[in-house]
Simulated assay, not measured.
Amino acid sequence: MNKLFKIGLASVTALSLVACSGGSQSDDTTKIGIIQLAEHPALDQAYEGFMDGLEEAGYTEDNTVFDYQNASNDQSNCKTIADKFVNDGDDLIYAIATPAAQSVAQATSDIPILVNAVTDPAASGIVEDNEAPGGNVSGVSDLTPVEEQIDLLQQLLPDAKKVAVMYCSSEDNSKIQAEMAEKALDEAGIEWEEATVADSSSIQQVTESLIGKVDAIYIPTDNLLAEGMSAVAQVSNANGIPCIVGESGMVSNGGLATYGIDYYRLGEMAAEQAVAILEDGKSPADMPIEYLSAEDCVLTINKTVAEELGITIPEEFADAEMIETAS
């Protein structure tokens, strides 16, 4: 009897361990790792659009494990998180922003990866070619209409003679956009100078160095500066230097205006790609990087900042999305 009791107890213990290790998950559970470089409006919307798109497609917490990780704008954190997803054997990884995408692409060549908030995946070394990725990575690009944004600068600030192109020197996506902006400024006959920041602690100092030297600042969809936009605006607006920026979240935090893309819609597009991979068996290698059309871009103006700087908003911008913020 004692021997039978021990055998029965061992069986119960083993079953308990299996239950604890597996939880409520089954073999049909999908595991999706999500890495977001930093927390700011554009990247948050790219995450929310993705999650809502998957929920609409039937992926919920009942049948899917979503492992969301924020890297706090730290490259070493990106690597650690990427390694975790690979070790966990995730079915798909969603990477938001270039440094996060680069880390997961380097960590695995097997797990399907979808990227978002990456200006040029090919130029950033994430895929072989944007039209034919050729590996385990595809996704959506947040390439903004830089030329149109420079046109917007000219329309709102017709007297601007010199513009600072401000960005983080370590972000590949920002370098690409900065070069595009500088080319557009050259074509417009506007003088420019680069103003690069290395980390958040240098934002205020770099902005202060522009006082009395430039008439405006152009900032692309730069993750570091999107996160620190209020620090830029605090200095620039107080000294009469308006900022034309890459996306609407930066306008909310003190930028004057943007003609920018919808990051929430980009997230939805990435969710559609995820469903195609998980349900239809499509390979990222054969899925071109997708882009938003010009019709999906939105003109956003910070009315409070315009009034503070004495800038008259042209009548043709009457249909723009107007933001009012605390002075």
Rank of each mutant, 00 (worst) to 15 (best):
T64M: 09
V140L: 09
D83Q: 13
Y291W: 12
P220G: 07
A42K: 09
I277K: 14
G249T: 06
L309G: 05
I217N: 06
A188Q: 10
Y264F: 15
N116F: 03
L225G: 00
V275Q: 08
C297Q: 08
T13Y: 12
L143T: 09
E295P: 01
A38K: 11
A294F: 04
L114C: 11
E187C: 00
Y218T: 01
T98V: 12
A57F: 11
A71K: 12
V197W: 04
L292A: 11
V165S: 01
N116A: 15
G212D: 01
I35R: 07
V65R: 04
T60I: 13
S72W: 07
T196S: 05
T98P: 05
S72N: 15
D90M: 14
D215V: 10
V115N: 13
V163H: 09
G139C: 08
T98G: 10
N136C: 04
G310Y: 06
E227F: 01
V235F: 03
E268A: 02
I126D: 10
S209Q: 08
M166E: 05
A95K: 06
A276H: 07
K213C: 03
D296K: 13
S103A: 15
E131Y: 06
I32M: 00
A42D: 10
Y259S: 08
S109R: 05
A270K: 03
N253P: 04
T312L: 02
V298N: 15
E307S: 12
P41V: 10
I277E: 11
D27K: 15
L114V: 09
I113F: 02
K183W: 00
Q234W: 04
T221N: 15
S103K: 05
